[in-house]
Amino acid sequence: MKHINSIVENGMKKSGNIGCGECQSSCQSACKTSCTVGNQSCRNRDEKINTPKKPLL
């Protein structure tokens, strides 16, 4: 594509739908040690906080 460069496609599907219940608990008020949901990684993944590596337009 000439005008569009997809950085991440279907991130929601890649996160899976398993709900194994083993990920770190989170705190929406962020007053605790735990994360908000946004910056968590799945406990079952080896590489945490993934940054896609693609050149930008």
Binding site: V8, G11, I18, V37, Q40, S41, K48, I49, T51
Partner: peptide, 11 residues
């Protein structure tokens, strides 16, 4: 932010 390996949908 983890764009490709964030928490599962239920979380």
């Amino acid at each position: 932010i983890d764009l490709e390996g964030g928490p599962c949908v239920i979380k």
